[in-house]
């Protein structure tokens, strides 16, 4: 049996809108993944630490505050610092297309805006992990 796909879902920054993150967490659970739900107001340091301890394959960041261009690079930087660049980072939330392109260029594996079918999220994660 293949190893279980483990995903950390976290909301960095200060916005308190976690419904989207919860819906995605639930969908990933239903797709057979083990989802560690870290919840609201996580610093990039907390997220990296949790990802390390939980040995996750994927980090899903939910950001609706507009601070993605500040937060996501910090998470990516910390992952690199900890020799964890093999952990795939996905971002969900309100991300302008232009920023999404920047994030992808920095190493984010996918950006999911409002209205993304949950199936697409599940498939993108699965492809990323199983493809490795």
């Amino acid at each position: 049996m293949a190893e279980k796909i483990r995903v950390l879902i976290a909301k960095p920054g200060l916005d308190g809108h976690d419904r989207g993150a919860k819906v995605v967490a639930r969908a990933l659970r239903d797709a057979g993944m083990e989802v560690i739900y870290a919840g609201l107001r996580q610093t990039p340091e907390m997220i990296t630490e949790a990802a390390l301890q939980e040995d996750v394959d994927v980090i899903g960041l939910s950001i609706l505050s507009g601070a993605h261009m500040a937060l996501v690079p910090r998470v990516l930087g910390l992952l690199q610092e900890h020799d964890m660049s093999d952990v795939a980072v996905f971002v969900g939330g309100i991300i302008p297309d232009e920023d999404a392109a920047h994030l992808i260029a920095m190493g984010v594996k996918g950006v999911f805006g409002p209205g993304t079918p949950l199936e697409d999220v599940v498939n993108a994660l699965r492809c990323e992990v199983v493809g490795h």
Binding site: A25, R26, L28, R29, D30, A31, G32, M33, E34, V35, I36, Y37, A38, G39, A50, E54
Partner: peptide, 8 residues
């Protein structure tokens, strides 16, 4: 699958 929510 599982939702592991104790860390929160």
């Amino acid at each position: 699958g599982a939702l592991l929510g104790d860390r929160i």
